[in-house]
Amino acid sequence: MSLGYQDFFLFGACCCALASLLHLGCIVFGEPWYRFFGAGDKMIQLVNQGSSYPHRLTFFISVVLMVWALYGWSGAGFIRELPFRDLVLCLISGVLILRGLMAKPLSQKISGNSIIFWWVSSLICLMMGLSFLAGLMLR
């Protein structure tokens, strides 16, 4: 059995949706979730101080990831075709691949996160971006 373009789009979309829900979990469950998922020391400190900034940023990321999931499902043909679908899927793929390749530079520029966080999150982003790219190339 070979994988088709729909499989790659579905994989990328489901990963984005799961990541979106996990980000929402951080907002709901607070500091333990932020810490578990690798938020930096500055973010943890802001959460503990009651700042709304970490929650607003996390919510924004969650919304972006859910929009990306919708575009992935659209690319797979599971929901209607969204505006500029192929262009947006190319951009999503590019952003995710670029983020995936940035583990070392980001870990050196942004302090407070563990190196494990940077490598794991970068690998996940790279995997999602390549999945969207494979879907585009196969379709």
Score class of each variant (00 low, 15 high):
Ser52Arg: 15
Gln49Asn: 08
Cys15Glu: 07
Gly50Leu: 06
Leu24Asp: 01
Gly77Pro: 05
Glu81Gly: 15
Ser114Val: 07
Asp86Met: 14
Leu70Trp: 06
Gly75Trp: 00
Met1Asn: 10
Phe78Val: 12
Phe78Asp: 11
Leu138Gln: 05
Ser74Pro: 05
Thr58Phe: 00
Val28Gly: 03
Ser121Phe: 13
Asp86Ser: 15
Ala19Ile: 11
Ser52Lys: 15
Arg99Pro: 04
Ser20Tyr: 00
Leu133Pro: 00
Leu24Glu: 02
Met43Gln: 13
Leu96Thr: 03
Trp119Ala: 15
Cys14Lys: 11
Ser51His: 02
Met102Trp: 15
Gly75Arg: 03
Gln108Thr: 12
Cys125Pro: 00
Pro83Gly: 10
Arg139Trp: 02
Trp119Thr: 13
Gly75Lys: 01
Arg56Gly: 10
Gly25His: 06
His23Thr: 08
Ile110Cys: 12
Leu98Phe: 14
Ser2Asn: 12
Cys125Val: 07
Glu31His: 11
Val120Thr: 07
Val64Ala: 15
Phe60Tyr: 14
Glu81Cys: 11
Phe84Tyr: 13
His23Gln: 09
Phe11Cys: 01
Phe117Arg: 07
Tyr71Val: 01
Lys104Asp: 11
Trp118Arg: 02
Gly75Tyr: 00
Arg139Met: 08
Met127Ser: 10
Lys42Cys: 11
Leu18Ala: 08
Phe11Ser: 02
Leu21Phe: 10
Leu3His: 04
Leu96Ala: 09
Ile44Asn: 06
Leu3Ile: 05
Leu136Asp: 09
Phe37Ile: 11
Pro105Arg: 13
Ile61Pro: 06
Val64Gly: 09
Leu89Lys: 00
Val28Leu: 04
